[in-house]
Design a protein around this nucleic acid. Structure first.
Lengths: 168, 168
DNA sequence: CCATGTTATATATCAAGTTATCGTTTATCA
DNA sequence: TGATAAACGATAACTTGATATATAACATGG
C-alpha cells in the first residue's frame, strides 16, 4: 500500500511531521505506562520548563514551550488538580499568575529526570542514530525504524544497557 | 526566552515534530486562503490519495494516509457534504464503502495540481533547501527560517519565479 | 485623573487526530 | 451447515493543538 504522504514529499510535510510526532508521543506514552508513571507524556515539557526555568507566568511559559497561551492555561489547571503545580498571584502585577512546581511536582520531576527521561531519550536517540542525508529521507528512515522496532522495545534495550552500566 | 523543546532534544522530539507540523499546516492554510481555495489544507492528502490511487474503501484509504480509520470516516463525511467525494457500496462485499472523487472533486484536484500544489511544494522546498547534518539541527534550521520568512512569503517568491519561467 | 488603549489570562469553540466499542457482513471450520 | 471468529466501517469519548473573544488589570495622554 503506497504511503501517500511520503509520495507527496514536500507538499504535505506538515501533515507528515504531525503524523510522525503523534506516533512518537503515543509510543512514548506506552513506555511511560510500563514504568508506572501516571501523567501524560505531553505534560512533561511543561514540567521540564518549570524545573529548568523556575516559576513563570502563564504567557512566558507558553512562549518557552512554543504553544499558544490557552493550551498552557488548560494544562496548568489540569496539573493543578493533580497537585503537581501551583499558581500564585504576582506581587507587582495582579494580571499575572505565576506557575511553579509543587513539592510533589518537583519530586516527580526529580524522579523522572533520574529514572524515566534518560530511558526515553536513549530510545529516541537510538531511533535517530546515524541518520544522514536530506530531511525527507531521514524522516522515512525514522518511520521505517519505528515500524520495525517500536520505541518501547528500544527503551527496554536502553534500560538494559543502563542497568548493565550501573551494575559495573 | 529559551525554547524548551529545542533544549530537551530527543526527549521531546514527538512534541516538537507535532509543533513544527502544525505551524507548517497553518502557514500552508494561509497560502491557500490567499489563493481563493476554500477547503482545509489537511483535506488535500485524502483528495490526492484518491486522485493518485483511484477509488478506495475507507480502510485502505486510512492505511495509505497513515491515519486511523475513524479519522477517514469523518473526513469522508465532511467532503461528501461539500460534494467533493462520493461513496458507493462495494459489489462483492456489503461491508465496504468505496470512496471516490466526484466530478467536482476531480476538477478541484486538477486545478490544485496545476495552480496550487506547485506553489506550496516550491515554498516548502525552499524552506528545506540546503539542509544538512543531524536531524535536530535541520529541524532547528527549519524553525528559524519559518520564523524569519513565513511560508506565504516564500510562496509569493516561488509564484514569481514560476510566472517568470512561463513568460520566457 | 479619567478615558482609552494595551496586556495577561480565561473561556468558548473548532479541528483533527487518537482508542475503544458496536453492529453488520463475511469467512472459517468442526 | 451452522456456530464462531474476523473484518469493515460508524460512533462515542477523549486529547491536544488552534483561533477568537471576553474580562480584568495596568499604562498613558489630554
Amino acid at each position: 500500500m503506497e504511503d501517500i504522504l511520503r509520495s507527496l514529499g514536500f507538499l504535505c510535510l506538515g501533515s507528515r511531521l504531525k503524523r510522525i510526532g503523534e506516533q512518537l508521543q503515543a509510543d512514548t506514552q506506552r513506555v511511560l505506562d510500563g514504568l508506572d508513571v501516571r501523567i501524560q507524556s505531553s505534560q512533561y515539557p511543561l514540567l521540564a520548563a518549570l524545573d529548568r526555568l523556575g516559576a513563570l507566568p502563564v504567557g512566558e511559559l507558553a512562549q518557552s514551550l512554543g504553544v499558544a497561551q490557552p493550551g498552557v492555561t488548560r494544562a496548568v489547571s489540569l496539573l493543578t488538580e493533580l497537585g503537581l503545580v501551583e499558581v500564585s498571584p504576582s506581587n507587582d502585577d495582579q494580571r499575572r499568575r505565576i506557575v511553579s512546581l509543587s513539592a510533589n511536582g518537583q519530586r516527580l520531576v526529580d524522579t523522572a529526570k533520574r529514572d524515566v527521561w534518560p530511558r526515553i531519550e536513549d530510545a529516541v536517540a537510538d531511533l535517530c542514530a546515524d541518520l544522514s542525508g536530506p530531511l525527507l529521507g531521514q524522516l522515512a528512515t525514522i518511520e521505517d525504524r519505528l515500524a520495525a522496532t517500536p520505541l518501547a522495545r528500544r527503551s527496554e534495550k536502553a534500560g538494559a544497557v543502563a542497568a548493565k552500566a550501573v551494575a559495573r
